[in-house]
Amino acid sequence: MSSFTIAHDIPGRMRIRYGKNKFSSVQGEVLKKDLYAWPMIESVEVINVTGSVLMSYDKAQKGLLLNKLKDLDI
């Protein structure tokens, strides 16, 4: 189960934070690839130094997105 905070959220765009240095640059790239595989995701930017992820997504599927994020093993 994943622990994150929502730093910014407007319909269709969300930044979440896992915590500083939570994952390496390689892990960040794997996370980015995994998130792009989700059908509701339109774009992803992962910043491993700050542990943040910026996503554009289908706003009609926000609930599903949040559930999937909670199930991630970060």
Rank of each mutant, 00 (worst) to 15 (best):
M40A: 02
P39S: 13
V44W: 02
S43Y: 10
S52V: 10
A60W: 00
G63Y: 00
M14T: 12
W38V: 05
I47K: 07
M55Q: 02
F23M: 08
I74Q: 04
N48I: 00
P11Y: 07
D58P: 03
G12M: 08
L35C: 04
V26W: 09
V46G: 02
S56N: 13
L35K: 04
L65A: 02
L72F: 11
R13L: 15
G19K: 10
W38C: 04
M14R: 11
F23S: 02
N21T: 06
A7Y: 00
M40E: 12
A37L: 08
A7F: 00
L31A: 09
G28W: 06
V26D: 13
P11V: 07
L54D: 12
I47C: 08
N67K: 14
V49H: 06
M1G: 13
K20Q: 14
Q61K: 14
G19S: 10
V46E: 00
R13I: 12
D58Q: 08
Y57L: 03
K33W: 11
K33M: 13
S3Y: 06
P39I: 05
L54E: 11
V30E: 14
A7V: 14
L66A: 03
I41T: 04
G19A: 11
L69I: 03
M40R: 01
F4N: 01
L54W: 10
I16Q: 03
A37S: 15
G51K: 09
R17W: 07
R17E: 15
L64M: 06
L64R: 07
W38T: 00
I10F: 05
N21V: 03
I16R: 04
A60M: 06
A7T: 11
M55H: 03
G63C: 02
G12H: 13
Y57V: 03
Q61R: 12
G28N: 09
Y18H: 12
L69D: 01
G19I: 09
F4W: 03
H8N: 09
G12I: 12
A7I: 12
M14V: 15
A7K: 11
F23I: 05
